[in-house]
Amino acid sequence: MLLFLLKRLLWTIPTLFGVSVLVFSMVHLVPGDPALVILGEHANKEALEALREQMGLNKPLLEQYLSYMDHILHGDLGISLVSGESVLEAFLQRFPATLELSLSALLIAIVIGLATGILAAIKRYSLFDNLSMGFALAGVSMPVFWLGLMLIYFFSVNLGWFPVFGRLNDAYYLDGPTGFYLIDSLIAGNLPAFWDALRHLVLPSIALATIPTAIIARMTRTSMLEVLQEDYVRTAQAKGCAPWRVVLIHTLRNALIPVTTVVGLMLAGLLAGSILTETTFSWPGVGRWMVNALNQRDFPIIQSSSLIVAVIFVGANLVVDILYACINPQIRLS
């Protein structure tokens, strides 16, 4: 196991290097001038040239890339060209909001997706199976931004059950750390703030969880049906094992292996792919921050945040491989 982890960690070096080159190249191919965005369209040429020189934008691309990588290796993700704030500090301020939203969506997807997939496999070809897989197909096909707007229209505008945007009303300001509003409000014993933060979280979590829920449900059903045909499952049934024991102990544990792959990568995907949800619900997370940086041609934010997302994906792959051995000890990592 130790040798496997060491090999995987070594493989992350060329992977992240390739990602850094790709992102850096693509960012500089995007039309637009950061200096022009900062100073405005009516700025004179002298001011634009001075600002480009100050930000190092007039240097050759190779020199800019080497300077960028030198700062990365020293733990410096750069300074925002627009706001002048540290990219790392800005990311850490917004990351708890994205993580809170992603974990909530993943929890919904796991609970509903697993339960639906298991019941659909047990009741194969039944009305429940057909309806649940039909809804799963619709969930995969449904655009997140459209679903978010529909949820806002019905549950916020018409019914008034949930807030339209944001994470917390100003009336429930939390004194102290405000990274994870649900946890912080509970620690502070501020139940009104907790319920308000939960109400703000419901609709974005549902919108973000729709596609993962559908994928997990379909994957669980398919994997369960395959395992149910195995000899050891039929042997357990012939021995008179209780149906719940056959499903949960003999079948589900082995069926979870491919599902674990999906769930592990899905968390990384949710962290990186919550851009549409955060934009729709004005959620102050990393995704919305990256969209604003892209509109403003803020190169350091785009490059560094993309590199962090790549690190998250690599880490998720590593965790999934380790979980394989925990779920099924017969798997040997080499």
Rank of each mutant, 00 (worst) to 15 (best):
L208D: 02
A209L: 13
A209W: 12
T210G: 08
P212D: 06
T213R: 05
A214G: 00
A214H: 06
I215R: 06
I215W: 03
I216R: 09
A217V: 05
A217H: 04
R218G: 01
R218I: 00
R221H: 02
T222H: 02
T222M: 02
T222Y: 00
L225E: 11
V227E: 06
V227R: 08
D231H: 03
D231A: 08
Y232C: 08
R234M: 14
R234L: 14
A236M: 10
Q237C: 01
A238L: 01
A238S: 10
G240F: 01
P243V: 12
P243N: 12
W244R: 12
W244Q: 06
R245G: 05
L248G: 09
I249N: 13
L252H: 05
R253K: 15
R253N: 10
A255R: 08
A255F: 04
I257L: 15
P258I: 03
P258E: 00
V259T: 08
V259K: 01
V262P: 01
V263N: 04
V263A: 01
G264C: 08
L265T: 07
M266F: 07
L267E: 13
L267A: 12
G269S: 11
G269T: 14
L270K: 10
L271P: 11
L271I: 15
A272Y: 03
A272G: 15
G273Y: 08
I275V: 15
I275G: 07
L276Q: 02
L276P: 06
T277M: 09
T277S: 10
T277G: 03
T277I: 01
T277Y: 03
T279M: 11
T280E: 04
T280V: 15
T280F: 04
G285L: 11
G285I: 10
G285R: 06
V286A: 13
V286G: 12
G287R: 10
G287S: 11
W289V: 00
W289K: 11
